[in-house]
Design a binder for these strands. Structure first.
Lengths: 154, 154
DNA sequence: TTTATATTGATAATACATATCAATTTCACA
DNA sequence: TGTGAAATTGATATGTATTATCAATATAAA
């Protein structure tokens, strides 16, 4: 099994456990949304609208509210994270590796999103939290600027 | 002159230069909003609504749209920064010291916002940007979690 | 002062997010 | 395998923050 397929299975398991722990129900719609999200949006940052439009083509009966609510469930269950890059839309991203937190560089010219991870930053943040007796639950780090190609064309 | 008064004067100068560079006009309304914002909201993170309500009490003729637009101008001119802590509202904060970037720890229980600055994090980010040939314009770092008092009461 | 241009403020329009609710589906339990 | 309580769905309405519109007004350059 490929690492990606393995990861997808792990998330599925986590989600199923979440469903039964919370006494929720598994439905065809949630299955479809899960498959689409974890099948086509790995490493991407999709808006609810985009995912809905995409799914609607194959499954016209699925409503916007369901996609919206299901993405919230993904976040609650810890298999997706919600991002906001300042354009007013919430974006969702499948979580690949829950151990390694990664961050984003956003080009203010072309809007392209680059990812990076950095251990030194992580340990700094843990220290800062500890120093302030703060129990770190989550953190977000975004760098805004010009990517190399947009720099050149200026 | 106190350091705070000095800072306020510096921001005023920056804003005036911005106004004349962009061929904009200085108005009574902008003066009022500047004074209120830099007089009462130092080190705070005010929403447009809050600032508007506050100003309306003393100057009932000033409209919401004007406060809204003026805060955008403050941001454009570099004397204020816009923040978003995930509650759907944009918050504005007067910039005290443009050399030292600071960040936020947000308690997910009580909503209180703590500030911190850290040189090591800053230099990490500069390195990361450099490595990726990215021209850093701005960056945001937020830590979400439980503050010490909310930890105890759990 | 005149005149071109920017600003104001009331309000309309937009956009994203969330709430509502009747019809339907799921699933625990008999 | 039915049955019924409870969750879910999807169409649509509502809420909320932001942005656009535009006539009246204020500003500042000539």
């Amino acid at each position: 099994m490929t690492p990606v397929a393995q990861m997808k299975m792990d998330r599925r398991k986590t989600f199923n456990e979440f469903i039964s722990r919370k006494r929720l129900k598994s439905t065809k719609q949630r299955d479809v949304i899960f498959d689409e999200f974890f099948g086509n949006y790995m490493g991407r940052h999709v808006t609810v609208e985009e995912l809905y439009e995409d799914i609607k083509r194959k499954y016209p009966h699925i409503g916007f509210a369901t996609v919206y609510r299901t993405l919230k469930l993904f976040r609650e269950s810890g298999i997706a994270s919600e991002r906001n890059f300042g354009d007013g839309k919430s974006r969702y991203e499948p979580i690949r590796d829950e151990r390694e937190h990664h961050h984003h560089m956003i080009c203010t010219e072309c809007g392209k999103i680059y990812e990076f991870a950095n251990n030194q930053v992580e340990s700094c943040l843990n220290q800062i939290a500890k120093l302030n007796e703060f129990k770190l639950e989550n953190h977000k780090l975004e760098i805004y600027g010009l990517c190399s190609s947009c720099r050149e064309s200026r």
